[in-house]
């Protein structure tokens, strides 16, 4: 008997107490869907929570996005920046002091490791937890791009911010590789003291782009 068959037989034997007609599909009675939360201002909440995890957060508007991104980059002055295919051209700063790496053909790990940062979009974000979710879509590229360089600048539109984890999950396609990012990499392994930056990027900067009309309201 193969181990597969053996294990399945053992399971069937172990579950003799389960009635024949109890379906595997039926959701258990106690399984209620989690509450969907409605924070009054999801954008502010996301910005606050992401900052609590020591991500730098900039809020800007569509028309000022490229300047805000330029300023965020200037703080790091990268020489080589990974900017994957599909990153909105309109958001790229007019004055470029860095060389763009597009990952086409794919960069070798050592080349990626030598890059000074990655500038990407994301699939969506979660307000309640300050989380970004990457799904390797256009403007994001494959997973390694936002992993090896020490600096990740991620740009998203405010409309991409979901209030909570359950809502975010419903907006994701599990056929893509998914990476949830909440702040820079961290460890608390030494005496539970939180240290930012172990293997993933040590600096995470998030730029939230809001529609222009709203920007006009808040910056009279």
């Amino acid at each position: 008997m193969s181990s597969r068959q053996e294990i399945l037989t053992r399971i069937a034997g172990a579950l003799r107490d389960v009635p024949e007609d109890e379906g595997a599909e039926a959701a258990p009675a106690d399984r209620r869907s989690p509450v969907v939360r409605h924070p009054p201002d999801p954008v502010a909440l996301f910005a606050e929570r992401a900052a609590e995890y020591r991500a730098a957060v900039t809020r800007t508007t569509e028309s000022e996005a490229s300047a805000a991104i330029g300023a965020a980059l200037a703080a790091r002055s990268p020489a080589r920046l990974v900017v994957p295919h599909g990153f909105p051209e309109a958001w790229l700063p007019a004055r470029r002091t860095w060389q763009r790496l597009e990952d086409d053909p794919p960069l070798r790990p050592a080349q990626l490791d030598a890059a000074d940062g990655a500038l990407t979009t994301c699939a969506l974000a979660v307000a309640e937890t300050g989380t970004l979710v990457l799904d390797a879509g256009p403007g994001q590229g494959r997973r390694a791009l936002t992993l090896l360089p020490d600096f990740h600048l991620c740009v998203l539109r405010s409309a991409q911010i979901a209030p909570d984890v359950p809502t975010a999950l419903r907006g994701l396609d599990p056929c893509c590789p998914l990476t949830f990012v909440s702040g820079p990499s961290a460890t608390s392994d030494i005496e539970l003291e939180r240290v930012e930056g172990v293997h993933g990027p040590r600096v995470l900067h998030i730029v939230i782009v809001e529609p222009d009309s709203r920007g006009a309201d808040t910056h009279p």
Partner: peptide, 30 residues
């Protein structure tokens, strides 16, 4: 939706842990 809320808060007392990876089989070129 339930477990990604239960686990990080119970484990490290964080709203969310820094990284969660999900993959489905193999992904071309990634």
């Amino acid at each position: 939706d339930v477990f990604l809320q239960l686990l990080p808060r119970s484990a490290t007392g964080e709203r969310m842990n820094p990284y969660t990876s999900m993959w489905t089989g193999t992904h071309d070129g990634d």
